[in-house]
Design a protein around this nucleic acid. Structure first.
Length: 750
RNA sequence: GCCGAGGUGGCGAAAUGGUAUACGCAAAGGCCUUAAGAGCCUUCGAGUGCAUAACUCAUGCGGGUUCGAGUCCCGCUCUCGGCACCA
């Protein structure tokens, strides 16, 4: 390598990160931006170990896109912050014996340090943390708006209870009967909790799915979760004449009902496929034919779906059939009758009803590390919201913050002076709500906050949203994240956005019209997990190879929407590529007179390909095109114009080394990241030397090198027939048909 | 069970219905070096073959459409994700 030094990533990456920060290179002017483009990656929660390579994969893929838009003339806002409130952070703090507040400070420092190291084009003037009182003031404000609109209510209900985290969970936070955070078996408990009426928005949440550009699988997951099903509620009669309402999507099978199955909260088991039942000794009367059918208590009817009672139709439902077989109940084989629908309505035996799987969002958490729910209970006036001018309700700094386990919140340990408060309505002594709100409420609106940080509104009391700025920057242009939030964050954020629109605070109702779901990074063919000991820590690799190499490698692994397999040997190869770029651009010999024509053709093909690929998030093929270009440059030489464009294209993936080359080797004005994205010149794409493929019956038999791609079918055919290899195949055979595709191939059918 | 994404060299992967295996990794041989490392050059789907001649066979399996199928259609199968007694 002689005269040219090996690239030293440590000093150079640091140097440019500091320079970008100092110059505000990636901080658009929120007020005056002409072409605003909001490029957002899903909010990270700072985990115990710090930034995970999976986070880095997500952020880098989003960052590449943001850089591309910036170089195409957009004022790109790419903010980052921490979703640091919540059970996850709190549990870790408990584990290491720290107060959550103290732990948050430590992990914030570490997380932001790592986020600097990965070289994202973040706007460091626009960071936020959900545990910052300036932020959760508005989370509490949002709760109050919900309450004022009649969409927040407190009710005693059967709720999901996680015995390990010692708190209530929403339906969305229960996955296959287990807590989505800690994996413990979730139990049921009757408790008084706050709920948001997300079910009021079920139809809009469902209908709008058609209009948003999201990955199909995420859209389907939301549709299934909302679970709209149309049917009827039919009233069977008890023997005393009272109603037994039954929800069914198959009223046309009312003529084949042989029993009634009721749910039982204590018997119900989501995973148990063995049907258990108990005859109640009572009978119900079918309104259609006045037939008496037995009423059974069962474990297979979901208590919180429909009316919690099902009409048993063994002939048309496998579950009912299993049950009837087990307990020797009647089976009536009758054809379904469409006319029954009308008959039921006409005779008022029942009415048309739409049922949803979606249920109201349980917001209360019996934990410490969250925003206190801003409500006050007065024995005379009932529940009253905290006056908005009194927000935020600060989370009291208490020593006994651990979850209690008896269903009460740790805020019971707060001083009386905090718990007792004057009723905002009558002024008498009243009590604060002691639960905190769900972490997912914090993250349901954070994207609205970033552009509004620092505005007059943000510092005021009316609403955190400046109308003009919000209109300018929102909705989010590209939202990038994993599919694991399909029915959690993504559903809540849509709901909250719709609500704020209805309240007149914003004028759009879909927060993320475009969502790109990236794939999952695995290690050596297996999912990363602590127990397997194969978790990739990005710091190690950044120290060893540099952020540029790691970023480019992650984007090269495979298609961005499919994820990829992280292998140590692979990243070494990418390290070699980055070193080769350094060496090539620094090499004075590369500028020597050379076969420029081939290089220019390749360059312009590459510009076109990379522009197309990056527009479509096909980063892996964009990088391979850059490798091909570099290979050709090494082979044939290049002028500085070619080298500049090479650096610009690579800068999306490897921002530091390319800045260094741009400024200090190619002597271009700072910064490469705000330079204009290159455009391809069509004249270089016209290839004057083409290869025509000659096929016999669709099989490749020969190739013709042709200097003019405009040759006619006749000219090509005669050239092909003269070809020795082709002649051998055609000799003595009758040509039935000739297929010709200009500039590409000719196929003789014999 | 339902829904979604997939199955291509030793490996990660690429291919608007038109040259399958680009790009990279690993491997082998060579150059350089006192040596090692780094770097550079060459080879690299399987088979027959002296061959860098020619041919045959290969994109999970079986059919089909087409001059031509990894790509489109039908039927299987396996893997990975998500949902699930939702009536």
């Amino acid at each position: 390598m002689s005269a040219i030094d090996k690239y030293n990533h440590i000093s150079i990456e640091n140097k440019w990160q500091e320079k970008w920060l100092k110059e505000g290179t990636f901080s658009p002017n929120i007020k005056t931006a002409k072409k605003p483009f909001y490029n957002l990656m899903m909010f990270p929660y700072p985990s115990a170990e710090g930034l995970h390579v999976g986070n880095m994969y997500a952020f880098t893929g989003a960052d590449v896109y943001g850089r591309f838009k910036r170089m195409n003339g957009y004022d790109v806002l790419e903010p980052i912050g921490l979703d640091g409130f919540g059970i996850h952070s709190e549990n870790y703090a408990i584990k290491v014996g720290r107060h959550p507040k103290e732990h948050a400070e430590i992990s914030q420092k570490n997380f932001y340090k790592q986020l600097h190291m990965i070289g994202g084009s973040f706007d460091w003037e626009k960071t936020l943390e959900t545990y910052d009182p300036n932020y959760y003031k508005w989370t509490q404000w949002l709760f109050i708006q919900m309450f004022k609109a009649g969409l927040a209510y407190k009710d005693r209900a059967i709720v999901n209870w996680c015995p390990t985290d010692k708190t209530v969970l929403s339906d969305e936070q229960v996955e296959g009967g287990k807590c989505e955070r800690c994996g413990s078996e979730v139990t049921k408990r009757s408790m008084s909790s706050w709920f948001f009426r997300i079910t009021n928005y079920a139809d809009r949440l469902l209908d709008n799915i058609e209009e948003i550009k999201w990955p199909e699988k995420i859209k389907i997951a939301q549709k299934n979760w909302i679970g709209k099903s149309q049917g009827m509620i039919i009233n069977f009669k008890n023997e005393d004449g009272s109603d037994i309402p039954v929800f069914t999507t198959r009223p046309d099978t009312l003529n084949a009902v042989t029993f009634i199955a009721t749910s039982d909260e204590t018997m119900y088991d989501e995973k148990n496929e063995t049907k258990i039942g108990e005859f109640t000794g009572k009978y119900a009367i079918n309104p259609f034919n006045n037939k008496k059918v037995p009423i059974w208590k069962t474990n297979y009817v979901a208590p919180r779906y429909g009316t919690g009672v099902v009409m048993g139709v063994p002939a048309h439902d496998d579950r009912d059939m299993d049950f009837a077989n087990k307990y020797h109940l009647d089976i009536i084989k009758k054809e379904p009758d469409e006319k029954l629908w009308k008959l039921i309505e006409k005779n008022k035996w029942g009415k048309i009803h739409t049922n949803y799987h979606l249920r109201d969002w349980g917001i209360s958490r019996q934990r410490y590390w969250g925003p206190p729910i801003p409500m006050i209970n007065c024995k005379d006036c009932g529940w009253q919201p905290v006056p908005e001018s009194d927000l935020p309700v600060l989370l009291p700094d208490i020593k006994e913050f651990k979850p209690q386990g008896d269903g009460t919140s740790p805020l019971h340990n707060a001083p009386e002076s905090w718990k007792k408060v004057k009723c905002p309505k009558c002024g008498e002594t009243a009590e604060r709500e002691l639960d905190v709100s769900d972490t997912f409420l914090d993250s349901s609106w954070y994207f609205l906050a970033y552009p509004n940080l620092g505005t007059e509104e943000w510092g005021g009391n009316e609403s955190p949203l400046n109308k003009e700025i919000t209109k300018k920057w929102l909705p989010v242009n590209t939202y990038i994240g994993g599919a694991e939030h399909a029915v959690l964050h993504l559903l809540y954020a849509r709901f909250v956005t719709m609500f704020l629109k209805d309240q007149g605070f914003i004028d759009f109702e879909e927060p993320f019209p475009f969502l790109f779901g990236h794939g999952l990074i695995i290690k050596d063919g297996a999912k990363m997990s602590k127990s397997k000991g194969n978790v990739v820590n990005p710091d190690e690799y950044i120290n060893k190879f540099g952020a540029d190499t790691l970023r480019t490698y992650l984007m090269f692994l495979g298609p961005y929407d499919q994820g990829g397999d992280f292998r140590d040997s692979g990243i070494e190869g990418m390290g070699r590529f980055i070193q080769r770029v350094w060496k090539t651009v620094n090499d004075p010999k590369i500028l020597a007179d050379s076969d420029r024509k081939d290089v220019y053709n390749k360059l312009h093909q590459t510009i076109k390909k990379i522009t197309d690929d990056v527009s479509n998030f096909k980063y892996n093929t964009a990088i391979s095109a850059l490798m091909e270009l570099l290979n050709l440059i090494q082979d044939k030489g290049a002028d500085s114009g070619v080298l500049k464009v090479l650096c610009q294209m690579l800068s999306l993936f490897a921002p530091h080394i390319t800045e260094e080359l741009w400024v200090n080797v190619l002597h271009q004005p700072f910064s490469i990241h705000t330079s204009n994205w290159p455009e391809h010149d069509a004249k270089y794409l016209k290839v004057d030397q083409v290869t025509i493929v000659v096929q016999i019956n669709g099989k490749l038999r020969s190739q013709l090198a042709i200097s003019n791609s405009q040759f006619s079918k006749e000219e090509i055919e005669s050239l092909a027939r003269k070809d020795e290899k082709v002649f051998k195949w055609l000799d003595g055979k009758e040509i039935k048909k000739t297929i010709f595709i200009p500039g590409k191939l000719i196929n003789f059918v014999i």
